[in-house]
C-alpha cells in the first residue's frame, strides 16, 4: 500500500455520501482521539474510530473494506463523549449502509441458523445481528 493519498474530486464523494446518510458533519472532527479510547472494541479494529473519521474526511475508500465498521456495535460511548458533538455511531452506520445497500450482506445466514439451534440464541441477538449485517 502506498503511503501517498492523491486527493482527487471523487474522494469527496465518500464524504458527501457519509454525511448525507448519517446526517452528521464529519469535517467537524478535530482528531482528538477521545472516541478511540472510549471505544470498547478499538483494540479489535484495523481503523480506530478517530481513524475512521479521518479516512472519511480524506475520502480514503479503504475504510469501506475495513473490519472496524463491522466491529462497531453502536454502543454510543463515542457519541456521548465526542467534544465536537458528532454522533459517530451514525457515521459507522452510514459506512455499513453504503456496503449493504449494494446488496452485499456481511453474514452467512446458513451459519447463523446452525448456531441458533446449537446455542439457543435469544431472538433479540438474531434480529439485531441480521438488521446490522444484512441489507
Amino acid at each position: 500500500m502506498s503511503n501517498v493519498i492523491h486527493i482527487e474530486e471523487e474522494e469527496n464523494e465518500l464524504l458527501a455520501k457519509v454525511e448525507e446518510i448519517s446526517g452528521e458533519t464529519v469535517t467537524l472532527c478535530e482528531q482528538c482521539g477521545i472516541c478511540t479510547t472510549s471505544c470498547p472494541m478499538a483494540e479489535e479494529m484495523d481503523f480506530t474510530p478517530a481513524g475512521i473519521m479521518h479516512a472519511v474526511k480524506l475520502g480514503d475508500k479503504n475504510v469501506l473494506d475495513s473490519k472496524a465498521i463491522w466491529i462497531c456495535a453502536s454502543c454510543f460511548t463515542c457519541t456521548v463523549r465526542c467534544p465536537r458533538g458528532i454522533d459517530l455511531a451514525k457515521v459507522t452506520e452510514a459506512l455499513r449502509q453504503i456496503h449493504l445497500r449494494k446488496n452485499k450482506d456481511h453474514v452467512n445466514l446458513e451459519e447463523v441458523k446452525e448456531e441458533e439451534q446449537e446455542e439457543n440464541l435469544p431472538p433479540i441477538a438474531l434480529v439485531s445481528a441480521l438488521r446490522k449485517f444484512t441489507g
Binding site: Q31, C32, G33, T36, T37, A42, E43, T48, A50, G51
Partner: peptide, 11 residues
C-alpha cells in the same frame, strides 16, 4: 491513562 496517540494511531 488509556489514550490514542492520534499521530501514530496507536493506543
Amino acid at each position: 491513562v488509556r489514550v490514542e496517540d492520534t499521530l501514530t494511531r496507536k493506543i
